[in-house]
Simulated assay, not measured.
Amino acid sequence: MKPTKILITGATGFIGSRLCELLSLEHRLPYRALVRDFSRAARIARLDPELVAGDMLDAGSLARAVEGCDAVVNLAHGDDQSAEKQTKLLVDACVRARVRRFVHVSSMAVHGPSPKPPVLTESTASIQRWGEGYSDAKSAAEAVVTAAGKRGALATVILRPTIVYGPYSFFVTPIVQDARAGKISMIDGGRGVCNAVYVDDVCESIMAALDRDDAVGEAFLINGDGRITWRDFITTFAGMVEGAKTIHDHSLDEIAAYWQAKRPRVRDSVTAAMRLAASPAFHAQLGTIPPVGKLIRGTKELVARRISSEQKMTIKSRLQSRSATAHADEAPAVRMPSEGRVVREAYRSWVSNDLAKARLGWVPAHSFELGAQRTGEWMRFARIV
Score class of each variant (00 low, 15 high):
A219T: 05
F368C: 00
Q86L: 06
R231N: 10
L75S: 05
W130N: 01
D92Q: 10
A125W: 04
G376A: 14
L23P: 02
A272V: 06
V66G: 03
E339V: 13
V270L: 12
D70T: 04
L319C: 03
M207H: 03
Q285E: 12
A45F: 09
Q373D: 12
I228G: 08
S24N: 06
A153V: 03
S338W: 08
A238G: 02
R40Y: 08
A196W: 07
R180D: 07
A153F: 04
D213S: 12
A59I: 08
C69F: 08
V266E: 15
D200M: 02
T173C: 09
L302A: 13
L370R: 12
A281P: 03
R32D: 00
S123T: 09
T156C: 07
A365S: 13
R64S: 14
S107A: 12
G361Y: 04
R151D: 13
S139M: 04
D188N: 12
P290E: 11
R43V: 11
L302W: 13
A331S: 15
D201Q: 06
W130E: 02
I315E: 13
N223I: 05
V303F: 11
A244L: 12
R267T: 14
S39A: 14
V95P: 01
V270Y: 09
M1S: 15
L62K: 04
W362G: 03
G361M: 00
I222C: 08
S114A: 14
L25N: 14
L75M: 09
V35W: 04
Q373E: 13
W230A: 01
L22H: 06
M56D: 02
R231T: 07
V303C: 11
I187T: 05
D37M: 07
K245N: 01
R344K: 11
S205N: 07
R348V: 09
V193L: 04
K357Q: 14
R318E: 15
A148R: 03
R46C: 09
V202Y: 00
R383H: 13
Q177M: 12
R383Y: 10
A53W: 08
Q128D: 12
Q260I: 06
R28L: 08
D211S: 15
G13Q: 00
M240D: 12
S309A: 15
I228Y: 00
D214G: 09
I307N: 05
R129V: 11
R359E: 08
V216P: 04
Y134R: 08
P118E: 03
R306Y: 05
M1G: 13
V103W: 02
K300G: 14
F381W: 14
F368A: 00
F381V: 07
A215R: 00
H366C: 02
Q285T: 11
P117F: 02
W230P: 02
D213V: 08
I175R: 01
E377P: 05
L159H: 03
